[in-house]
Every structure is written in C-alpha cells, then in structure tokens.
C-alpha cells in the first residue's frame, strides 16, 4: 500500500468546478481546473483578482462558504484519496495535518487575544496527543526553525507586539507544525516589504526542502513565481489557460494572455524607458461570461469566427506544456 501510494502524485485535481449563487447571478468562479502537485515540488498559480486562484485553493481545503458557494463537480485526490468524499469530521483531520495553508494577511489570520505560542500549540495539540511540556518544546523548536529571534520571549507575546514579517513567520510555523504533505500559500508575501518578502520566501523554500512538502503558491507577482516555482498554472476567468515549467512559461509562453502579461511587466534590468505593451480592457464578469473564449475581447490574436463562438478545449504538447487557445489546436 505504502509503495503504491508513493507512485501516485501527491495532489491531483480533476475538472474542478466551484460556483457561487449570488443576487447578481451564478458566478462560475472555477470552471474545470485540472492539475497535479508532486512531493517537494512548488507549483505557482498566477492570475489577476477574480481569476479563480484563491477559490481553487479554498476548494482544495473545502473551505468554500456554503451557501452561497459550492463545489459543483470534479475530484481532489490527495495521495489517491478523494477529499470531496470525506465527511466534514474526516476533512477536519486532513486540514492542518496533511494540508496546511498560509494566508495573505498576517494581521488578520492570527488571534489578537491569544499568545503566539498558544496559537501554535493549539495546532499541534489538535493533531497529536502530547504532554504540555512536549508541546511547548515543539513550539519553541518551530519558532527556532522559522528564525524568530528569542523564541522563549515570543511564546508569551501577542500578535500586535511583533512585526508583519514576524507574524508571517509564526503563520508559517503553524502551517509546518504537523509536517503537512501539501502547503497551500495564498499570496503569502503580498502584504510584506520586498526585503522581508525575500526573507520569508527563502524560509518557506528551506522548510519545504527539509520536509519534502509539495507547495501550491498562489500569487499575482510573476517575479516571485520565476524565482521559487518549478511549474506554473496561469489562470484567467476561472480556467487554467496555460501551464508548464517556469522555463516554458517565461521563455516560450504560448497563450496570448500569458504573452501579454509578461510583456506588460516593467523590467528592472532594462536600460531604456521603452513603452509598455498593455493588455487593453479588463477581465470579464464571471456572472455574465461571453460565449466563446473568455479572453476574446482583449485578445490581440483572436480569430474572428471560432474564438467568439466556441470555447477552446485545451491542447497538451509533448513537452508537457498545456494551452487553452485555438491558435494551438483546439
């Protein structure tokens, strides 16, 4: 059993669909997303607000607020086990111990009335039966692992007494408290300054290598993706429009949206003030999606007849790169 488990990918998501019933209509936030994450691998999910990247993450954790949201179809296999078939109680056990999550805002994700050490201890106690002294020792060890200065003092401090970067370190400590197999990090460094972002990213990378954790890193910062990810999913209007290794995505992007995004980035190494290539218009309203390709309105390479009529199915190349565009097959 153990051997066959290791042959399966750590996480396999198939045709996931998540929708929200709102007064403005049915919002199809995630429209058939499939991907996999291997052990020790970092998969980046990039996209703009409303592209469905955070809803995908919350669906994996089964943390979609129901109602108004619900997972309509698809499967989420963690080492072969379908998380969507678990009872709420069983899912509770998976969260924290097998899948952990780090959120964007370290200011709101910690409890302001609880000591930092207690918050980490809570996460450990939920999934292990240890004595009080053992738990405290594990917490101090974790604080050392995430490089919090003077961990014994930090144990008794409250969130408002430490900086944003340190708070995010505590959050990462909580996430790694039970050695999760999969870490979902939703914009973990967006609220931080660049110098602190660099510290936190290198910390996550180190812990991930030590524990062979698979990581799903959600971000809108293509720079962060290029630096830390092995593979990338580019999301637009609830779908993965392109996926591949970082090299494939950054050096040979095939989807016009990916190409547009990369061209619109100001380059820090560039010497001249070249005019930026911008993508015109704005993302579509997910409650009123157009017929055909969701990127049609903004696409510089659209083919008039098919693109506005049919939705592209997606093509997989021999190299493993996938793209959802009529310019490349169906």
């Amino acid at each position: 059993m153990k051997a066959s488990r290791n042959l399966l990918p750590l996480l396999e998501v198939n045709s996931l669909q998540t929708e929200f019933k709102t007064q403005g209509g049915l919002v199809r936030a995630v429209r058939g997303v499939s991907f996999s994450v291997e052990r020790g691998e970092t998969v980046g999910v990039v996209g703009e607000s409303g592209s469905g990247k955070s809803v995908t993450a919350l669906s994996l954790m089964r943390l979609i607020p129901t109602p108004p949201g619900y997972i309509k179809a698809g499967s989420i296999l963690l080492e072969g086990q379908d998380l969507l078939s678990l009872s709420p109680r069983e899912m509770q056990k998976v969260r924290g111990s097998q899948i952990a999550m780090v959120f964007q805002d370290p200011f709101t994700s910690l409890n302001p009335t609880m000591k930092l050490g207690e918050q980490v201890a809570e996460a450990i106690r939920l999934h292990n039966s240890l004595s009080k002294a053992e738990v405290t020792e594990r917490v101090i060890n974790l604080f050392e692992a995430v490089r919090l200065p003077s961990p014994e003092i930090r144990y008794h401090q409250y969130p408002h007494e430490i900086s944003g970067g340190q708070r995010q370190r505590v959050m990462i400590g909580i996430a790694f408290a039970c050695n999760p197999k999969l870490l979902i990090a939703d914009e973990p460094t967006t609220a931080l300054d660049v110098t602190v972002q660099a510290q936190v990213l290198s910390l996550m990378k180190r812990l991930q290598t030590e524990h062979n954790t698979g990581t799903l890193l959600i971000t809108h910062d293509l720079g962060v993706v290029a630096e830390v990810c092995d593979r990338v999913l580019v999301m637009y209007a609830g779908q993965v429009v392109e996926s591949g290794t970082v090299q494939q995505i950054f050096q040979a992007p095939k989807h016009p949206y990916t190409q547009g995004l990369l061209a619109s980035l100001p380059q820090i190494q560039a010497d001249s003030r070249q005019r930026l290539v911008s993508i015109p218009g704005q993302p579509p309203d997910l409650a009123h999606l157009p017929k055909g390709c969701a990127f049609y309105e903004r696409c510089p390479k659209r083919i008039l007849d098919i693109c506005s009529q049919k939705e592209p199915e997606g093509t997989t190349f021999d190299t493993g790169q996938t793209v959802r565009c009529f310019l490349h097959g169906s």
Binding site: T195, Q197, L222, V224, A226, E227, V228, V246, Q247, I268
Partner: peptide, 13 residues
C-alpha cells in the same frame, strides 16, 4: 533592496 526584488525571469535566479 535591489537584490530582494524578484525578477520575472527564471534564468536569473
């Protein structure tokens, strides 16, 4: 500060 900025090019890690 400059060295902390992530560059959107996987070749320049």
């Amino acid at each position: 500060l400059l060295s902390a900025v992530p560059v959107a090019d996987p070749v320049i890690r």
